[in-house]
Amino acid sequence: MQAIRSRDTKPEQLIRRLVHAQGLRYRVAAKPLPGLRRTADLVFRPAKVAVFVDGCYWHGCPEHYVSPKTNTGYWSDKVAGNVARDRDTDQRLTEAGWLVLRFWEHEPADKCAAHIAAEVERRRASARVSKEDG
Score class of each variant (00 low, 15 high):
K78T: 06
G23I: 01
R37Y: 10
G35V: 11
A29P: 09
Y57M: 08
N71T: 01
P32C: 08
W58R: 07
V83Y: 11
V19D: 05
H20F: 15
R102K: 02
R27T: 05
P32L: 04
V49G: 04
L18R: 02
A84G: 03
V19R: 02
A29K: 05
L93K: 10
E95M: 11
V28L: 10
T94H: 13
T72D: 00
T72R: 15
V51W: 00
H59V: 06
D77Y: 13
T89A: 11
K31F: 12
V49I: 05
L14M: 14
A80V: 11
K31W: 07
Y57Q: 06
H20R: 05
G55C: 07
L93R: 10
C56Y: 00
R17A: 15
P34F: 08
V51M: 02
W58T: 07
K78W: 00
D86M: 03
V19H: 01
L36E: 04
N71C: 09
Q22E: 05
L14G: 08
W104I: 03
D90N: 14
Y65M: 03
T72K: 13
A47N: 06
R25V: 06
G81Q: 14
K10A: 14
G97I: 02
R7M: 07
G55H: 00
R45P: 15
D77P: 08
P68E: 02
K31D: 08
V43A: 07
V19T: 01
H59L: 06
A80R: 13
D86G: 07
C61Y: 04
R102H: 01
D77T: 13
A47S: 13
V28E: 13
T39Y: 07
P34N: 06
A29C: 12
V66D: 09
V100H: 10
R85C: 09
A47M: 07
L24V: 00
R102L: 02
S67V: 14
A50N: 01
L99V: 15
A21Q: 14
N82F: 09
R17I: 08
W98V: 01
D54E: 15
N71G: 06
D54V: 09
L42Q: 02
H20T: 01
S67L: 09
R16G: 08
G35M: 04
C56S: 09
K10P: 01
K31S: 13
E95K: 04
N71K: 07
L18I: 01
C56Q: 03
R16F: 07
A50Q: 03
Q91D: 08
V66S: 10
A30N: 11
K78G: 02
R38W: 15
P68N: 04
R16S: 05
G81K: 13
D41V: 06
Q13F: 04
F103D: 04
V53W: 00
N71I: 05
H64G: 01
A80E: 14
N82C: 12
G81C: 11
A80C: 08
R16P: 04
